[in-house]
Amino acid sequence: MRLEPINNPTLARKLVPPALALASTVVIASLLAMVAGANPFSVIGLILKGAFGSKFAILETLNRATPLIFTGLAVAVAFRAKFWNIGAEAQLYAGALVTVLLGTGFLPWSSFAILPLIIVASIIVGAVVLLVPALLKTRFGVDEVVTTLLFNFIFLLFISMLLEGVLKDPMGMGWPKSARLIPEARLPRIVEGLRLHWGFGLAILSAVGIWIIQTRSTLGYEMRAVGLNKEAAAFAGIPVNVVIVKTALLSGGLAALAGFSEVAGLKGSLTLDLSPGFGYTGIIVAMLALLNPLAVVVAALFVAGIFVGADSMSRAADVPTYLADIMLATALLLMVLAIMLTRFRVVRD
């Protein structure tokens, strides 16, 4: 078999494969739930109800989507320039670390002073964490996939060391947990009485900001050019390595905001289980969004909905929550295949 580009894809060509991918994901998940002894026809309904069925559920989904928007953006920005940042997890913890370092009381400032400071510092430190793999790539040609992956392990151990050492909360009953943020360093709620913090607002703002950078700025143009064809970009006079480093800084900063928003908006302190793999899930979010920053918001809501919905479905139908991860992996694989099929035709030899 052979692949042939389609010059003028019809509307059906553009819509049918992605729709089939989603439908297949639903069918596979239902079948797996049936294996676990649940009613296959009720599982998807239970997930949707758990994710969007009540005010509480929707707020929970929005909260869960917040870090995923940040990590999804981080991945989308990097992948657009074909810089494979798989290390959003490490950068997330870098942001969280900065937040507890600055926000636990040694700066007795008001919210208006301390929150911007923490945000800027988180972005800088997250960017620096990703700068190392970026420079290793541009200077030595070391593949960033492996280095960013390995950095996740190194950084998590580093955080664990701090939490059992200098950062350990003396009031923490022996748990490896940092001290709590002072109230001034906490992100306020968007609407009083509703459990949704301004981290979500910041995430939406970031998505719009990245969209503007990508579509309206020289840097966005250069990042796309480097991603499409490095040699051609270099030939056109674009400083490829500089663009890669700038991309990495932007990506690392975005991922760090996920850590900031989780600690300052939700948890209030740093623990080792702050992120259940938000950095890795960001890759799925970014791919489902086709690397489009505005679509990242939608994809993050979808992914967060599956996680939150699967939690409640799991309690109701006694199906392991890992079904959510299986659904996401399946959706990811089928979706990249579907997107390809919207642009290419499979021809038999």
Binding site: W84, P320, L323, I326, L328, A329, L333
Partner: peptide, 17 residues
């Protein structure tokens, strides 16, 4: 890259399941 990470996620989650 994407397929590989997807396979890792699928293999891990279906194993745990």
């Amino acid at each position: 890259h994407v397929v590989g990470l997807g396979v890792t996620l699928l293999a891990t989650s279906s194993t745990y399941y």
